[in-house]
Nucleic acid binder design. Structure first.
Lengths: 215, 215
DNA sequence: CATAGAGTGGCACCCTGTGCCATAATCTGC
DNA sequence: GCAGATTATGGCACAGGGTGCCACTCTATG
């Protein structure tokens, strides 16, 4: 029953990605255990019926400890989504400055999501909860809208809309909405992959919009 | 201390808008009492610190009864927002069919909000809570996104995007996002009124988009 | 006035989330 | 290794959100 925590001073040599002290690795380990236990239970009985006591038991920690890793049950979600937002922001910031700002944002979202899907266990199941459970839908949208400032800032830095922050805010928000809707369609429409749905949504946003060069 | 409930058989005659039986009017009355008590308390101490016990006490009902009027504390919000969404949908549906579909949607949102602001006590304070309290932000966005199906349906009926439902969905969602962002700016930027903010946001969406007639 | 049905309040109960404290584990310097 | 500082953990108590249940009150109807 006891699972082992990877040791740093072990005989088989420390792997490069197992960075940090034992304490840090342990923390990371328990975090993943809780996360996994939670998602397993969500899949079994749904979000609302999965009590924190049950999640904790499944993860092998006390209820009190759960709250030291996640402030609320919903934070289990925001967690994944925030991480996803950071990925997108990083890629966006790393894109060549010569690229059209909106096109760079689109690229960042598409490529980040391709990677995200590969990394995530049961991405569609997770997404299902986000769309079906009203509680989670709110959290999801709230997390999405929290991406706006960072994306808007990068748009402004790249002189989209001549650097007008209000317009960049709105543009970022619109792209997040397209992101959401593309996921919704991907979830509901089997057979069409996510990148295609994203591209369709983005095309509709910029459809017939003439990106007039900054003066 | 005792407030009186408008009687139907009173000497001063029944007012036309006080329709329904005594039971129904009483229900409506208590509903408003709770709603008002809640918003007053929210303004005083914030959403989180306003306990349901305190709201109920202020409204003169028991805690148990509160939950017979509102399933959750957050529902106090969704309530207003849903109502607002219905208003918009009604106006949209009532617009002349000859009008450009997207323009009709814009008109509906603008005029509905003008009326809404007049009807609402402290509209900006309410909005403030929606943007500042993370819990409420999620609820707000979730309620907003629940408008999408109805608006999309009406867009499709009016042959926007040649009736393509996927595109209408996205368009409706984008307009809701513009709606949200306009409110955000209105809240943060004193001195510019809401209709102006809405118009600015809408202009950016359709900016340079050529509404080609449906073939 | 009598009776059915809806509204109400009080109670017990479970779950979420937090503060507090004792205990156990890790880290640091020796 | 070892002692002390630091941090993680678990258990407990407690406030608040939300629900089921039951007795009681009020309305609607005849």
């Amino acid at each position: 029953m006891q699972k082992t925590i990877p040791t740093s001073g072990g005989e088989q040599g420390t792997k490069p990605q197992d960075s940090g002290s034992l304490r840090e690795r342990k923390h990371e380990f328990v975090l993943r255990e809780i996360e996994q236990a939670a998602w397993d239970l969500f899949a079994d009985v749904g979000f609302d019926r999965a009590t924190i006591a049950a999640i904790s038991r499944r993860a092998g920690v006390s209820r009190r400890t759960f709250f030291r890793y996640f402030r609320t049950k919903e934070e289990l979600l925001s967690y994944s989504i925030m991480h996803c937002g950071q990925r997108i922001a990083q890629r966006f910031a790393g894109a060549p400055k010569s690229r059209n700002p909106l096109a760079a944002l689109e690229d960042a979202m598409i490529s980040a999501m391709q990677e995200e899907i590969e990394d995530t266990r049961q991405p569609k199941e997770m997404l299902g909860l986000m769309f079906e459970e009203p509680n989670l839908r709110g959290r999801f949208l709230c997390a999405l809208s929290s991406w706006v400032p960072a994306l808007s800032k990068e748009l402004a830095k790249r002189k989209a809309y001549r650097g007008d922050s209000a317009r960049c805010d709105l543009a970022a928000a619109l792209y997040c909405t397209a992101f959401d809707q593309a996921h919704l369609r991907w979830y509901r429409e089997p057979g069409v992959d996510l990148p295609t749905q994203l591209k369709r949504a983005f095309r509709q946003i910029r459809e017939s919009k003439n990106h007039r060069p900054a003066r």
